[in-house]
């Protein structure tokens, strides 16, 4: 099972595609959640996901604006895609046919 942070990060990597690296993932997550994510909280799950084989990383070419430093780019593996699908179906199943979630604010 993925943690919430892992799930969010996988989704971010999927959305950002070729442009998925630390800074872009962090910015995206911060924008979506409205919280400023510390960079360390992005890298820790990224590493864990890489070790689990859900992500693959490679070093990208250095680009401007980074003081000539290269980026570490991430991409979903097949397992990663499957894990996301599983997570989604679990979430859907959990939400499906709730009698009255009672969660609406009305």
């Amino acid at each position: 099972m993925l943690t919430r942070a892992e799930e969010l990060i996988l989704l971010a990597v999927w959305r950002l595609q070729e442009e998925a690296y630390g800074a872009s993932i962090r910015t995206h997550l911060s924008n979506v959640t409205g919280e400023d994510w510390p960079i360390a909280t992005v890298y820790t799950p990224l590493d864990r996901l890489t070790r689990k084989g859900l992500l693959r990383s490679r070093m990208g070419a250095p680009t401007g604006g980074r003081g000539g430093r290269s980026r570490k780019l991430y991409r979903l593996t097949g397992d990663g895609v499957r894990a996301l699908n599983t997570a989604r179906s679990v979430t859907d199943a959990m939400w499906k046919d709730l009698p009255d979630p009672g969660l609406s604010l009305t």
Binding site: G22, R69, S70, R71
Partner: peptide
């Protein structure tokens, strides 16, 4: 990890 972490932060910093 120094290289890309520093790079990431610097990039966002400039943004």
């Amino acid at each position: 990890e120094q290289q890309f972490v520093e790079g990431d932060l610097e990039e966002t910093f400039h943004e």
